[in-house]
Design a protein around this nucleic acid. Structure first.
Lengths: 226, 226
DNA sequence: TAGTGGTCTAGACCACAGC
DNA sequence: CTGTGGTCTAGACCACTAG
């Protein structure tokens, strides 16, 4: 949870943990099994136990990855990043990231599917929590995908609203002025420290968010699709 | 999963199940613990093990209950049910419920919070799957709440889109014509049999859907709030 | 093929809540 | 108080797979 063990890090074997915590191997096994179910670790026989990489469609309400969404629809993905700047967080950024102070990276992006506007995105990244983001190439790997791969998160919150497109948004999304759009806001934390805030806007009539839940496996998935 | 054991039904004790399945009590305990985690059963010491009633804010993407949503905001709840009719499912109803034939109950409702329109709802209920619905009083208990209490489901899917209000919808929700609205569609199944389809429309600027996820406990919640 | 995790067992003690 | 579930134990055997 602290993030000290990066995705892929190998944990001690069951017998070592049993000795370390002075308990039976079965007790360690149950604890680790619970961590597998919450998606924090992965286990392979003969190989060991490893810190997991969060993946799309595994955990409930996981961080959607725009590039994967577009490619899953069989379309070509492209991103534009017209704005990229680093600054000390002002009141608005501190509120959105829920931190008292931080250096932040602010990005404005536009996502395309087959050269048609797919979504616009405004994103804040807390550089104190994810300093490597300052040097990341977001044209190569879009910010959502990059964060998914490089930063471990422990809590997430989504908020979905609908708005009518104003003139600027309508032009960016190539839709009529006033047409309904879906707004997906997303906050991500690690141990109460805000990592990133994203606000993505989709044409509301063309795209839908879907979520499935199966209580038998307690598995769920969230996706945006045409 | 078959629905034969209604919510509240007491399961055999661990020792009885261990004898019945010829295994150790610890094995039964692990199986039942998994069912607790998936939310299918509840267990109380000294009392026993019971089929659970699905509850709001317990499982991921659980069925939102409009009445609970409104009351959670500290507002008075009221419902109107202008349309209520029973008929044999036509092509559209069969498609939405994903059944080959069925008798269906069709409802049109309007939900109010403090006498202000909160949402409109169109709902189909498969009467072959939930025959008791034909005699239910949906003014006393709104359909979402009634189904939540009386019918066990095993799978659910949500779909969220945004639309601009047409003249009729704008009047029903007391919003301006063309203003953006959130559309929440929900399908619910039990063992692949469609139980209900609901389509709820909220004023998009006034209300938001939020979803939280905490991988440590694998708990998540979805809610609609002002 | 050896070293991991996966799983079951029989027994034990405890905490808790109905009765 | 007593009967449930909650949890731990020490040992065992098996399945899988990485080296």
């Amino acid at each position: 949870m602290s993030g000290d063990w990066k995705p892929g890090h190998r944990l001690p074997f069951e017998e070592e943990l049993a000795e370390q915590y002075d308990c039976a191997r079965m007790t360690v096994n149950r604890a680790l099994s619970a961590l597998v179910q919450s998606g924090l670790i992965e286990r392979r026989r003969r190989a060991g136990t490893f810190v997991a990489t969060p993946r799309f469609a595994r955990a409930a309400l996981e961080i959607p990855d725009t590039r994967s969404e577009v490619r899953a629809q069989g379309k070509a993905y492209r991103i534009e990043v017209p704005t990229r700047l680093v600054r000390v967080a002002g009141p608005r950024e501190r509120g959105l990231l829920r931190v008292t102070q931080a250096r932040v990276l602010e990005l404005h992006c536009r996502h395309f599917a087959d050269d048609r506007p797919y979504a616009v995105e405004e994103r804040l990244i807390n550089l104190d929590a994810a300093p490597e983001a300052e040097r990341a190439d977001f044209l190569e790997t879009p910010p959502g995908s990059w964060l998914l791969k490089n930063v471990t998160w422990t809590e997430a919150e989504h908020r979905i609203t609908a708005i009518g497109a104003d003139v600027a948004l309508a032009r960016q999304l190539a839709v009529g002025e006033g047409s309904a759009c879906l707004v997906l806001e997303r906050w991500t934390w690690r141990s109460a420290e805000g990592i990133t805030y994203a606000r993505q806007i989709y044409p509301g009539d063309r795209y839908a968010m879907t979520a499935r839940f199966d209580p038998t496996s307690a598995a769920s998935a969230i996706a945006v699709a045409a």
